[in-house]
Design a protein around this nucleic acid. Structure first.
Lengths: 204, 204
DNA sequence: GCAATTAAAGACCAATCGGTCTATATATCG
DNA sequence: CGATATATAGACCGATTGGTCTTTAATTGC
């Protein structure tokens, strides 16, 4: 039994732009330029908002950045939840997870970089709000990968002596390192072979 | 038989500050704040130079940054050349190399981050001069690690199926990923255990 | 119609940006 | 000494920064 909260309809002109779409457009700009190098005019151009509307909707540049970062993180977590879904074969899941990173860190995709890694390096040390988000994301990733590895172990597919929690930390570092090295645009073939070689070390 | 190049002594007041020391001080500032977030006054305070002297000595902010980056890279390469010296036992060398990264990515050291990774994420995509330096550093690291692994293989110390070149790419990604995750200040014990677990996968 | 609300456009703000330049003191040479 | 060169301090520059505010038009509910 749920009650309808009687939503008081606002009296005036309703908001005419999609806030989430604006966050996404802002995210793309922060993603390609970083926080400090992104100026207000860049954000106005990308979101197609006026200065007034942007400040009314988001407060200031920093708040908008946090919304964009949250969006980026939510997308990444959602992706992992699909790839590493417990109902799926864990090894297939891990392969899909790695293949996704290979795709995102090769060639032109690699050049685009990663908002999360860039933010970690640019702001995590100085900005507590950002630092917490980065740390919790890495924990979330590690937990999901560890869980998949744990299921693989139960299924008898892990090589002898491989600890799921330890191997998960290795994989997290590896994929984040891929994002860094990906900035120099290695070929997909090389990256894929490297990821395969690592995973093979963990499997029977 | 070498000729003394007759160094024409400058006539006026000689330079009274140490240029390399100034580069190093500037490096520390860029290291902790990143390129865009570092303002001229920060650099003047750190180098203890006047505006005029700094511009006379280095040209502009960007040139000074490149000098600082080159210095950072040279230090890193020198360190690797010691750790992975061909006259040393390759496995000991690899352990020392990894231990160095563990030290630099744990706790407070981890929070300080890495100028190279931060620069890769902030500038490598947009700044060709920077991009080349980053790419060549990763190549240099990969070559040295591959060489050490190759010697380990010759000595019969590598596990079956481990390819030196492929394993070297894995290790490069891993240590750069450590630098990223290190921004959230993991404990040394955890990082060391993770690095050990990875290296063990490659060894007999 | 009228009140209420929001949009866009852009003037406006103080502060700061990277960079140049001048003035003056200092230190080294022949 | 006189010429040369470099140091510092700080004024100065136009451009840009993030952010506020005003004006006017648009769009809704009553």
């Amino acid at each position: 039994m749920s009650h309808q909260t009687p939503v008081q309809l606002p009296r005036g002109r309703p908001r005419s732009f999609d806030v989430e779409a604006a966050v996404e457009r802002a995210m793309v700009v922060f993603w390609s330029r970083g926080y400090h190098a992104t100026a207000l005019p860049d954000l106005l151009r990308a979101t197609k908002l006026s200065r007034g509307s942007l400040y009314a909707a988001f407060g200031d540049k920093h708040s908008l950045f946090l919304r964009a970062l949250d969006r980026y993180i939510a997308d990444a977590v959602t992706r992992m939840d699909v790839e590493l879904d417990p109902r799926r074969d864990p090894v297939d899941g891990l392969r899909a997870y790695l293949a996704g990173y290979v795709d995102r860190t090769s060639g032109a995709n690699g050049r685009r970089g990663c908002l999360l890694v860039a933010t970690a390096m640019e702001l995590a040390g100085q900005d507590a709000e950002v630092g917490r988000r980065i740390a919790s994301f890495f924990k979330a990733m590690e937990a999901r990968v560890a869980d998949a590895l744990s299921r693989a172990k139960t299924a008898g597919k892990l090589a002898d002596g491989v600890e799921p929690s330890s191997a998960a930390r290795i994989l997290v570092c590896f994929v984040e390192g891929l994002r860094v090295v990906g900035k120099t645009a290695p070929t997909r073939i090389t990256s894929q072979a490297t990821a395969d070689a690592l995973l093979d070390r963990f499997m029977k």
